[in-house]
Nucleic acid binder design. Structure first.
Lengths: 161, 161
DNA sequence: TACTGATCATCAGTATACGTCAATTCGAAC
DNA sequence: GTTCGAATTGACGTATACTGATGATCAGTA
């Protein structure tokens, strides 16, 4: 039996745990109240106005049911609007409000700072190599997070909607 | 604004998300019902019989309030026992049951398999380099989260204060 | 004995994450 | 026009994770 620091799964959990804490600290420091997931969603909605929730989930690799709560909280803060689509009344059309735009601009430097803190233990060359390997590792097993889901539904990230 | 691919925080979340899914798949395949966190806790209790919950939390870098629920579920499955310590009536002494030992043995190959799957996109040299950088990055920012890594003081997990 | 501060476990509240199921709606076949 | 399969969303249950608060206990002190 290996030690915990030999287990990529454990290290992944630990790194992500710290990443969330660092994000919270940096974002709070600039007076914003956004979680990492809420930031990702807000950014995606900004880049894809009128997106529906399923497509949004695919874009940032979230579970479909998780998006409901995330969007709910963003809407409650007045950062996005969620309206029934005219073309497809099942779908909810998501748009960023002016308040959402301001919040996104305001939080941006904090997000950048958080990413730098996370890699502060590595030299620039090491950081680059680390991200490269991380992307490579993810790429090889991407789609595994859907392994237990019914196969009929589309893959994460591509819905060409 | 960077793309998600350039954000270590996002990549960390994605990698961890996949790690959990792969773990679940492999563990289910051998007929076990353990989450990654439950496995870590069970292994730590096996290695430190009589450990209390706070020390356990420090060993595997969990939040102290999370441990309550994790141990609760392990106890409900009959894999560990939780009794009030004779020396310190605030503390709960944790021990693995024979059933817990059997479950741990049975799940071990699945856990190993999951770790291999996670790194399947990397060559052995790359995998080693990746884990090295991951450990280094974590080491530099460890302590930023509420759940800090704290090595056990005594061999059996006694913390004397 | 009583007070004080620290420690251990737990609970309430919030948020992420996933699976299952139900309700609604859409598109297409009948 | 109604029925049927598919798709979108939401509700509910379970698990992890952290903040803040509380109760119980321990150790030290007056």
């Amino acid at each position: 039996m290996r030690d915990n620091d030999q287990m990529p799964g454990h290290l992944a959990r630990r790194f992500q745990q710290i990443a969330v804490a660092v994000f919270h600290a940096e974002v709070e420091a600039v007076g914003c109240d956004l979680t990492p997931v809420q930031y990702s969603a807000l950014l995606a909605i900004h880049r894809h106005p009128g997106i529906d929730q399923i497509t949004l989930a695919g874009l940032i690799a979230y579970d479909r049911t998780t998006i409901t709560g995330v969007v709910d909280r963003l809407a409650r803060k007045g950062l996005v609007t969620r309206e029934v689509s005219g073309a497809d009344r099942r779908a909810r059309v998501l748009r960023m409000t002016p308040d959402g735009g301001r919040e996104l601009c305001r939080v941006q430097p904090a997000v950048e700072a958080a990413q730098e803190v996370l890699l502060s233990g590595l030299s620039p060359a090491e950081a680059e190599s680390f991200l490269e390997l991380l992307r490579k590792a993810i790429g090889a097993v991407d789609g595994r997070s859907r392994a237990k889901l019914r196969p009929a539904i589309g893959a994460t990230g591509e819905r060409s909607g």
